[in-house]
């Protein structure tokens, strides 16, 4: 995985399948970097994940909630169609975290802020 900074936004990309301890480390790293860079937005790119099971979904939700408490908004981008299907069947989702099709859309969502209002709980 890699975490890049663009302006006040952090872009975290997952490149390979992560096991549970790696997911936890990813969460810790990311939340620490939000404080370090005083980020206002976080984009998590999960396009490379071929499986998002209950633990991965829970981790993503935890990251988003922790980021919110630290003053940053999170957008998840790049969920593959078959992964989305499985998540629905499994009965879990990303909850109230906004999502976008890809990185570009995610950035637009964070910077535009127009259609963002209705997505917030």
């Amino acid at each position: 995985m890699s975490i890049l900074r663009q302006g006040s936004t952090l872009i975290a990309s997952v490149h390979t399948a992560l096991d549970d301890s790696e997911l936890e480390r990813f969460r810790t790293d990311l939340v620490a970097q939000i404080g370090e860079h005083r980020s206002r937005g976080v984009i998590i790119d999960v396009a490379a994940l071929d499986v998002i099971d209950s633990f991965a979904a829970l981790t993503l939700r935890t990251i988003a909630e922790m980021a919110r408490l630290r003053g940053a908004r999170t957008v998840i981008v790049g969920i593959q169609p078959e992964v989305a299907f499985t998540m629905v069947r499994l009965g879990m989702g990303t909850g109230s975290i906004p999502t976008a099709l890809d990185l570009e859309e995610g950035l637009a969502l964070l910077t535009g802020g127009v259609d963002d209002g209705r997505r917030r709980p």
């Binding site: 499986v51 099971d53 078959e82």
Partner: peptide, 17 residues
Amino acid sequence: SRTDLTVLATAVSELCR
């Protein structure tokens, strides 16, 4: 299909966990 493979991999993941 890719969907079935993903469904299977996800279920295996839950059981192994």
